[in-house]
Amino acid sequence: MAAQSGMVDPAIFKDLQSMVDQDAALRDELRDIIQALEKHNRNIMFVLSRAHSTPVANLSDVLKAAEEPIQNVVETVSKLSQSASKLPYYKFNSMWSRQVQEAVSGILFWGWLGGQKQDGGESKCGRLLTIEELGEILKVPVNLKDRDEFHLTIEEYLQALITLVEELARLARNSVTLGDYERPVLINQFIKDLHAGFQILNLKNDSLRRRSDGIKYRVKDVEDVVYDLSLRNLLPKKEVEN
């Protein structure tokens, strides 16, 4: 402060400027990785969108084809995780949160369709990948609390679940078009169960709340499909007995 003649020590603003500039440089670096992630996410969705027009019997080709873009996503997320773990997580989290949600919802859809082989090597429709399983697939920790590193948050997982519900509501209708009357029943139960889960959360007035409010309409959409089927006696027999 000795060299200071006026009111402001020039070093104050010089330091502030360099702090802010440094942040901006870090953001630029992250932005490249995030853009790559966005591209790979699009590829997953591109491949998986074929599920809407592919009968269950032929689905394994689609699921196989999705493995490559998923692998790309996993690698990109690892890269992001490495760069971001050096920084305060929540300072930059908003930059990639949406892209991570998209990656997760893509993998959730893939998993639901039976992408992940079960222990017996069989793939089964209707499975929900948990947040822990997603962490394993993406090779990142989930819901960290004790240290400041990159991870998958509960909010991101829940957002991705909502996307999955929306995707499945579409799939219920499209299944009928494909002549598959079994899957709508499965979807109906599945998203009802998820809806029940969302109902016990105490959500605040945030984007999660707003989006989760839409789940009940998706539930209704699928109920309508099942209703149409039952009205015409098209429901598979064993389901009716249950």
Partner: peptide
């Protein structure tokens, strides 16, 4: 909110998972 839900929603297999999330979010 909890009581309301519990009476009208019978067991969904995901309830335990969501209970964990609820605790964290709360």
């Amino acid at each position: 909110a909890m009581v309301e839900v519990k009476t009208e929603q019978p067991a969904s297999p995901y309830i335990p998972m969501f209970e964990g999330f609820r605790k964290e979010l709360d």
